[in-house]
């Protein structure tokens, strides 16, 4: 939200913008004294500006605006509203979507577990394609990051899924055309493949480095709306004598992924392989971290 929308005088607005306070959120958690000094204005005027920003920020809370601009605070009602309006990525399977409440949720880390061959990779590829369904067809029209640790990503399978998805979109489009609401589908499978950023990592150090780098990568590619890690734990089951270290690293990585999901409104899918009874218990460690 721009400061232009605030009910303050034009000269105050000009001072705010020239001092670098262009958005209302930049005024949160600022003391009147600080603002007065930055803008070179009397303190009463600063209080007035902050008051305007505060009442703007919390229209719902009419009693006392001044206290509600604490950084990050959010009412449960806001959270509920936000969750209802949050973006979801369809799995292309009605039953899945039903139990997931409409699809895979952005802003969340979702874990997919299961025995080998159950279809974790297939679901991952499917989501990397489905995130690209254009907005006109109820999708996100976004891009995907695919982090492959196991080498199971097959380009030819991704092409097949992309082709099927395109024919689905065309069919849906024909359906829309009958209601005179046409959305152009100009996809080719190669376009869909082009929008999947594929990383192959061969060791856990590479994986950690990549996850650390993702924040920068996604802020450079704002249209990425899904990050798929297939699978998160493969490399963590090889080389760890020190299990406490492994837990720390995994927890750190899970936190980073959650943070990414929150900050950039992306969905993170972490495929994971189940632990054998009697062997390690990476699985439970990761599961504890998921939201």
């Amino acid at each position: 939200m721009e400061v232009a929308g605030l009910p303050i005088s034009p000269s105050q607005r000009g001072k705010l913008i020239s001092a670098g306070y262009t958005t209302i959120s930049s005024l949160t958690s600022l003391s009147p004294h600080h603002l007065a000094r930055d803008l070179n204005i009397p303190e009463e005027e600063a209080v007035q500006i902050l008051g305007a920003a505060a009442s703007h920020n919390s229209r719902l809370d009419t009693s006392d605006g001044g206290h509600s601009i604490v950084n990050g605070a959010q009412t449960a009602w806001d959270m509920f509203r936000e969750e209802q309006s949050s973006l979801r990525i369809t799995t292309s399977c009605a039953d899945f979507d039903n139990i997931l409440g409409g699809g895979i949720n952005c802003k969340e880390v979702t874990e997919i577990g299961g025995v080998p061959g159950i279809g974790k990779t297939q679901l991952g590829i499917q989501l990397a394609v489905n995130v690209q369904i254009p907005m006109g067809l109820g999708g996100l029209g976004a891009k995907a990051v695919y982090i492959d640790t196991e080498g199971s990503f097959m380009v030819e399978r991704a092409t097949q899924i992309a082709e099927a998805s395109i024919s689905d979109m065309l069919e849906y489009n024909n359906h829309l055309a009958k209601q005179n609401r046409v959305c152009q589908v100009k996809f080719k499978p190669s376009d869909i493949l082009e929008n999947i950023f594929y990383f192959r990592v061969c060791s856990y150090t590479e994986q950690m480095a990549l996850i650390n780098h993702l924040e920068k990568f996604i802020s450079d590619h704002k249209d990425v709306k899904i990050v798929i890690v297939d699978s998160v734990t493969f490399h963590f089951r090889q080389d760890f004598e020190d299990l406490a270290l492994r837990t720390r690293l995994l927890n750190g990585m899970a936190l980073k992924l959650m943070n990414l999901a929150k900050t950039f409104n992306v969905a993170v899918i972490a495929g994971h392989i189940p632990a054998q009874i009697g062997s390690s218990c990476t699985g439970t460690r990761m599961s504890e971290m998921h939201t």
Binding site: V145, V155, E156, A158, T159, S190, L193, E194, I196, F197, Y198, F199, R200, E206, A209, L210, H213, K216, F217
Partner: peptide, 12 residues
């Protein structure tokens, strides 16, 4: 810095 591989360059 890690860069993604282009899926198009990995032959179809």
């Amino acid at each position: 810095t890690p860069t993604p591989e282009s899926l198009l360059s990995l032959s179809i």
